[in-house]
Nucleic acid binder design. Structure first.
Lengths: 191, 191
DNA sequence: TTAAACACTTGACATTTATCAAGGAATTAA
DNA sequence: TTAATTCCTTGATAAATGTCAAGTGTTTAA
């Protein structure tokens, strides 16, 4: 039998050999993060990568005059500043829990060891990151070609639940609009 | 001695072994693309990946009412629809030459063979894509936190040459503004 | 339990950006 | 070389979005 983490690994990386799955998943540790607690602070180095098992984590940056939410990770998404995790650069984002959360965490040391366990790991992980890259391309495209209203609709259609789970101002920021604009767009959609 | 393509490979992927460099670069073929010609058409599958050696290539999408420029690739940048190239999905972008260009092209078949030549290839390539991902994150951030004016300044500072090389409307689109807004922002900056 | 803090909405207004239309300069094609 | 096309700019105006301030309901913390 496989547990939920192993199901993620299977679906994200296409690993199906049970012993490989087990050995990879053994590198991860389930970690609890209380609402409001930080997983990562801007400027520090990210030494871990995690998959969200339950709860909600917000990835954001603090500017002088405002806070910008880059992403909200729910069950199944990964969290880290990838660039910081991989290259050791200072993290550009902070990550904190919007509610009590559980995440499967792997240290950088163990992460670097996966390749020894699964010969095809780097290849599989590459495919995973290509998918992430592609999502980012689409997201940029949405900013080049859509209005706030259209970005709202599009995001709402694929993430309805989230609108009842987190302060809407965070979704507003993530979509590149103010809470006031978000509120007005939302009203139009509710009517 | 190494040629320019080998220098790219060296700097992007960190490969330093001369024989490895030579064997990888032998997979690439120099290809000429005349101004206005297409490298890739939206909807088709991308079976090649290329590095621009000279000239300028524009990556864009055609919408009903407008055209959206996603990126302009100059010397050293790669071109392809990565998701299409890797997964075989239909390309979301068209790519054409803004001027007579030369690109080093690798076919999907040979690309898939690099791993056999260089054992660490997938790992190195993964790092390359993580950097690309990171660039995309920053670009999204610029849309969440900056005005048209600020995006202009930021891009101008790192890409001054481009402003004399391509129709400015393409840069405008790539930065998410109309040519008129671009023109006005530009005027303010020239004064 | 109460006070404070937060989240959301709404209105009035300001600012930014887009749209439309016109004209001049530069480039391309006949 | 000339005509046509494209590119860029500019002005007038419209539309989208942001800002500020107030008010209400909800959540949090003392």
């Amino acid at each position: 039998m496989t547990n939920e983490l192993e199901e993620y690994i299977k679906s994200y990386f296409g690993i199906v050999e049970l012993d490989e799955l087990k050995r990879i998943s053994s590198f991860f540790e389930l970690q609890s993060i209380k609402k409001g607690e930080f997983y990562l602070k801007e400027g520090s180095q990210s030494n871990e990568l995690s998959f969200v098992q339950s709860g909600l984590m917000r990835i954001y940056a603090d500017l002088e005059d405002k806070e910008v939410t880059q992403w909200i990770s729910s069950k199944g998404y990964f969290i880290t500043d990838l660039s910081s995790f991989v290259f050791g650069s200072p993290s550009r984002w902070s990550i904190h829990a919007l509610e009590d959360s559980e995440v499967y965490t792997i240290s950088k040391e163990n992460y670097n060891r996966i390749g020894e366990v699964v010969p095809t790991w780097h290849q599989l992980e590459k495919l995973f990151i290509v998918r992430c890259f592609s999502v980012m391309e689409d997201r940029i495209f949405s900013h080049l070609s859509m209005t706030a209203d259209e970005r709202y609709s599009m995001f709402f259609e694929s993430n309805k639940e989230l609108f009842n789970q987190v302060p809407l101002k965070y979704i507003a920021s993530m979509l590149g609009m103010t809470p006031e604009t978000f509120s007005r767009v939302r009203k139009r959609h509710l009517i």
